[in-house]
């Protein structure tokens, strides 16, 4: 996109938007009674953080955030909740298909229709390539978005990286020691 007067405003608007949603979701996450509802709010926090990473031009981190945190970890989380049978439907709160829920849904539908109209009127390039001047400013030239992360991680921050792996090893051993059925206090 061409640098113009609205770009800082665009950036700031989205920064505050996603930050506020993230903070509100985090508050809702810790105040919900039902673990399933809490977990879903946590997913929302993760998505908003991913959006903030995109604003910082860290697309790869954003994608990882969605895949690993919002995806894998939260699925495991919900599995545990469901295996322990913690999420009774009665605890999930009021049904959203009534009153305010319907109003909100209608409002969101209107926004989406409006968005469609805007897109319809917007000029769209027939060719999906960026002008050369813009690619040069991206880190693509030297190894893509991933290279910008992988390089420092295995060079400047190698020690931190290795220590993190030892840390994870300690956590795994700990989980096994605490979690196994045999052994521990009643081995004999």
């Amino acid at each position: 996109m061409q640098p113009n007067a609205f770009e800082p405003l665009f950036y700031q608007f989205h920064f505050y938007l996603f930050s506020l949603i993230a903070i509100a979701s985090a508050v809702l996450f810790v105040t919900r009674k039902s673990p399933v509802a809490a977990a879903m709010w946590l997913v929302n926090v993760m998505f908003c953080l991913a959006a903030l990473y995109v604003l910082l031009d860290a697309q790869f981190v954003a994608a990882m955030q969605v895949l690993v945190y919002a995806g894998a970890i939260m699925v495991v989380f919900l599995f545990v909740v469901m295996l322990l049978n913690l999420g009774h439907p009665s605890e999930l709160g009021a049904d959203i298909r009534q009153g305010w829920g319907r109003l909100l849904a209608g409002f969101l539908a209107l926004v989406m229709v409006a968005e469609l109209f805007v897109l319809w009127r917007a000029p769209i390039r027939w060719q999906l390539t960026l002008p050369a001047a813009e690619t040069a400013s991206q880190p693509n030239a030297t190894g893509g978005v991933i290279g910008a992360i992988a390089g420092p991680m295995f060079k400047e921050y190698l020690l931190a990286f290795e220590l993190t792996s030892v840390l994870l090893l300690a956590a795994i051993i700990g989980a096994v020691v605490l979690g196994r059925k045999s052994g521990g206090a009643d081995a004999r």
Binding site: Y157, L167, A170, G174
Partner: peptide, 25 residues
Amino acid sequence: LMILFLGIELMSIAVYVLVAMDRRR
């Protein structure tokens, strides 16, 4: 500070488990 944090976490996680080791009690 980054290395320091990792050191603290490595120590703490191991000690959390050690404290709870006798978990039947």
